[in-house]
Nucleic acid binder design. Sequence first.
DNA 1: CTGAAAGCGCTTACAG
DNA 2: CTGAAAGCGCTTACAG
Lengths: 348, 348
Amino acid sequence: MATMVDVARLAGVSISTVSHVLNGTRNVEPGTRDRVLAAIEQTSYRQDALARAMRRSQTDSLGLVLSDVGEPAFAEMMHGVQESAYADGMTLLVANSDETAERELRAVRTLLERRVDGIVLARVADSSDEVLDELSRAGVPVVLMDRLAGLPIDQVGTENRSSMRELVDHLVGLGHRRIVAVVGDTRVSPLRERLEGFRDAVRSTGLAEEDQTVLLSSSKSENLSDRLSAVLTEHRPTALIACSTHLAAGALGVVRRLGLSIPSDLAFATFDGFPYPELFEPHITTVRQPGFDVGAAAVRLLISRIGGSAGDPSTVRLSPTIEYRASTGPRVPQPSEKTSTAQPMQTS
Amino acid sequence: MATMVDVARLAGVSISTVSHVLNGTRNVEPGTRDRVLAAIEQTSYRQDALARAMRRSQTDSLGLVLSDVGEPAFAEMMHGVQESAYADGMTLLVANSDETAERELRAVRTLLERRVDGIVLARVADSSDEVLDELSRAGVPVVLMDRLAGLPIDQVGTENRSSMRELVDHLVGLGHRRIVAVVGDTRVSPLRERLEGFRDAVRSTGLAEEDQTVLLSSSKSENLSDRLSAVLTEHRPTALIACSTHLAAGALGVVRRLGLSIPSDLAFATFDGFPYPELFEPHITTVRQPGFDVGAAAVRLLISRIGGSAGDPSTVRLSPTIEYRASTGPRVPQPSEKTSTAQPMQTS
DNA sequence: CTGAAAGCGCTTACAG
DNA sequence: CTGAAAGCGCTTACAG
């Protein structure tokens, strides 16, 4: 690989001049400039981003820490992060925390060692305090994404609480009085906020608290299926709300195993939802977060901080859209109305 | 941030010794070593990966170029790449080609400027020759992933041709004689290979060629829906094979719009398929590629090349699994058999 | 308008 | 067992 020295020699100039031609950082006489350009061409010279970064102590790169790209919501956010970073000429380093605190800490350290200019971080449920400590000690700007905190730190996520309220209001408006919310791990902020919204709605709509069920879990591996199965058979709710794609997948499995029809036996709604939602029957009522925009906004905020923008930490919340679909039916399921039977192999 | 000089001063040694303690590259007297370690602790010293990389001309990082993380198959491959890279202590730089040749070339150049030790590349349909040229000129090891080529270059992908043959054989065994294959853009190697498998199977099973339909497209944006709609209504195939998730999504939309039932009006099978496939009705017969393993294998091969392993370029093909499900029915659809009507809102 | 030189933070022969 | 010094490939005051 050719270096600046090669180019300079060939053009008969100093490396200063080559550098300035390359970066447009000072005027160069047209003739000189042309010779340099020709020499660059001839040697197939390519700038070494490493050496440049080292000298400038700025790498033009951003780190992204996610628990799993496979999760559709995160894939969308990553896409937004990617595009926004690209638009600003930043390269993206991606690390996987695999939803464990230890790997998250290692991931952040690796990114720090690589001197990324900033980090977008979707924290794991039991994130270690050391993560934010090291980040602030290193003085590297951070923006939390999706998994937010009650801390003075920049963060971008979705509005959860009032969306849940709206969803529950809708169900109550349809006549539902017994709802089960599959919430999962409330250490994960969006799940916690959705739970709060659920409780808000129960209170404000005057639903009997004892008729509502909330299913929590305290670890990633904990299986809610058996408990949900018991709730559905014994408690007989008429509506179910899953608070994430993953929880919805598990819940749908249980519903199917019990032979319940949606929405005639049970109304079904979920947050986040599935890719290609329009293709499957029944269409599932979904609170869909603007994942791409969340990722893009996180990078914009991060880049403004990198650029030196001062001011208090800001929390940005983007609004999800609620897609009301057939799975929450027009009518409340009534035992007496069970006229239709499951038709597992039909689709329209 | 503390540097080696700070650590050395505090420990009363030279930076050589600090470096050797850090990297375990030579014996250091225990007492000296302890002083160094203590100084590292006290200064919160962290190695600068940039300076290290520059000196060693090795960055311990890998580049990944994908067209879109949103595509489930690519998300899985990325996960495999990520985990395999992590296991080998490599950091991952991810660039998005957005399925356009120009962005792909820019992505590769950016990764090259950042001196990645190797690149995993899922090429765009109309990839520029310059991409592979620059890569070989730079002497950076590359492994093509998923989108393979008839070139002397390392590559890892899925076996496509014989899987398609097996799928068609299965359909023929069920009595199907009129099949439509939604193939898409044959510049994309897996799609091309699936088409070849389809033609192989038509020949070997003795199907009448004029009764089979192949739908091709030559650009990403081209909409196959109208043509598929015409084929389904005029040509009346009894089975449909979609060659990718994206094509399956489009095809399912058309099928639904025409009010056809699966599998009673039309058997439906797809390559790649949807996430959470077990949750929707009807279950779709799917040729599922081992995305994670493809990604992981690509990185393993890449790392062995980085490590200096010689030998001819190798092509690794992993086998997909064919999941036969309800969507290809047990029986061939017959007009006279249309006893069931669509039940759009039912699920079991 | 241009160049010589310092320095970013490391690794690694070389010498003792 | 340890240190002084060169050098990786750039950028950027400083000087002319």
